[in-house]
Lab assay of single mutants.
Amino acid sequence: MDTYKLILNGKTLKGETTTEAVDAATAEKVFKHYANEHGVHGHWTYDPETKTFTSTE
């Protein structure tokens, strides 16, 4: 398992979190669920070199 990072740049919520996942697709599902639960619906990007997802509203 690898550690993946999420950076949230929402209108009402900003911050970072991490998750352990078997691959990027699994981490993306976890992070999108997390963002949706916190009302963040933004544009998603992923940097495979740093294993970092960013959601920007």
Rank of each mutant, 00 (worst) to 15 (best):
G15L: 15
T26N: 08
A25S: 09
T52S: 04
A24N: 04
T50V: 06
D23Q: 03
G15M: 15
T56C: 07
T18I: 08
T45D: 10
T19H: 07
D47R: 03
P48V: 08
L13V: 14
E28T: 03
D23K: 02
D2S: 14
L13W: 15
T19M: 12
A27F: 01
T54W: 10
A21K: 02
K29C: 09
A35R: 02
T26P: 01
P48Y: 06
E20S: 11
F31S: 00
A21T: 04
T17N: 05
A35S: 05
T45G: 06
G42I: 06
T52I: 07
E20V: 14
V22I: 13
K5T: 14
T18S: 11
A21W: 02
L13H: 15
K14W: 11
T12N: 14
E37P: 01
G42K: 02
P48G: 07
K14F: 10
T19N: 02
K32N: 05
A21M: 02
N36M: 14
A25T: 10
N9T: 08
L6H: 02
L6M: 04
A35W: 03
T17A: 12
E20G: 04
T45E: 12
S55L: 15
K32Y: 07
A21F: 04
I7L: 06
S55Q: 08
W44H: 02
S55H: 10
H43E: 15
N36R: 12
E16Y: 11
T54R: 06
E16L: 07
T52P: 00
A27H: 01
E49K: 12
S55K: 03
G39Q: 07
T18Y: 14
G15W: 15
K5H: 12
P48M: 07
H38D: 02
M1N: 09
N9R: 09
E20R: 13
H43Q: 13
A35Q: 03
A24H: 07
D2L: 11
L8Q: 02
G39P: 00
F31R: 00
S55P: 03
M1Q: 08
E57I: 05
M1W: 13
Y46A: 00
N36D: 13
H33D: 14
G15Y: 15
K11P: 14
E16G: 07
F53H: 01
D47G: 01
K14E: 07
Y4V: 02
K32L: 10
N36F: 14
Y46V: 01
D47N: 11
S55V: 15
G39H: 07
F31Q: 01
G15H: 14
T52D: 00
L6Y: 03
T56E: 10
A27K: 00
H43K: 11
E20H: 10
W44Q: 02
T17G: 04
W44N: 01
G10I: 05
S55C: 15
E20K: 13
A24Y: 13
T19Q: 05
V22P: 15
N36A: 15
F31T: 00
L8N: 01
Y46E: 00
K5P: 01
G39W: 07
T50Y: 05
L6D: 03
F53R: 00
V30N: 06
E37D: 10
Y46R: 00
A25I: 11
K29M: 12
N9A: 08
T52Q: 04
Y46T: 00
D2I: 12
L8A: 02
E28M: 13
G42F: 06
Y4G: 02
W44P: 00
G39S: 06
E28P: 00
V22D: 07
A35Y: 03
Y4R: 00
H41C: 11
K32V: 08
D47E: 08
E28G: 06
G42H: 04
T3Y: 06
E20A: 10
D2V: 12
V30A: 09
A27Y: 00
T26E: 14
T26C: 07
H33V: 12
G15A: 15
T19Y: 13
G42L: 09
N9I: 15
F53K: 00
K51L: 10
A21C: 07
T18W: 14
G39M: 07
D2T: 14
H43M: 13
A27T: 01
A35K: 01
E28R: 05
H41Q: 11
V40E: 05
K5N: 06
T26D: 10
T18M: 08
V30W: 14
F31H: 01
T17Q: 08
Y34K: 02
D47F: 05
Y34A: 02
N36K: 14
P48R: 06
H43D: 14
H43G: 07
T19G: 02
I7K: 06
A27M: 00
A24R: 10
H38K: 13
H41Y: 14
T50I: 06
G39E: 05
T17P: 02
E20N: 11
L13F: 15
T50H: 06
T52A: 03
E16I: 09
K51I: 01
K11M: 14
L13Q: 09
A21L: 01
